[in-house]
Amino acid sequence: MKPPLLFCCLALCVASLSCERHAELKREIAALDATVKKDESATQQYDKDIAALGGREGLIRLLEQAQIKADQLRPLEFINAPRERKLSAIETEFAKLKPAAEAFKAAQPK
């Protein structure tokens, strides 16, 4: 639409609204303004909390610390692998012996 035509349509729409609608719109606008102010104050509080915890650089520090911990844990994974294989072998042997043990128990007189 051309700007003059747009303003004419807008003026016609505003002029045709009833007084009751104006009050309802004012209430809705007031509610939206209150919501916006509340959201802005929450955003400011979040910014303050982030600044208190180290600012935006805090995330970088946390990522660096996480990487350091991952580097420290990686060698432990290799140490536990042989133990897990031994444990798995023992569990496999127990699984093989379990039916024989139960058959032996069933064969014993009570």
Rank of each mutant, 00 (worst) to 15 (best):
L97N: 00
A107M: 01
L59A: 01
L63K: 10
E20N: 11
T43Q: 11
D71S: 09
E40D: 09
E84K: 13
E93Q: 07
A101K: 05
G54C: 06
P3K: 05
R56H: 14
A11Y: 00
Q45V: 03
I90E: 07
R61D: 09
D71G: 06
K69F: 09
P3M: 03
E84T: 09
K69E: 10
E64I: 06
R56P: 15
L12C: 09
I68G: 12
C13F: 15
G58H: 03
Y46E: 14
Q72M: 09
Y46N: 11
G58R: 00
K69A: 07
T43F: 13
I29R: 12
Q72N: 06
Q108R: 11
L25N: 13
I60Y: 05
A70I: 01
E28N: 07
E24V: 02
D33H: 08
E102G: 02
L10T: 08
R85Q: 14
A89I: 03
C9G: 10
A107T: 01
A103C: 05
L25F: 03
S41W: 03
A106M: 03
A11C: 01
L17I: 13
R61Y: 06
E57F: 05
T35Y: 02
S88R: 10
R83D: 09
A100N: 07
M1Q: 04
A81Y: 06
A81W: 06
V14W: 14
Q108M: 13
Q67H: 04
R85A: 15
L73V: 10
A100L: 11
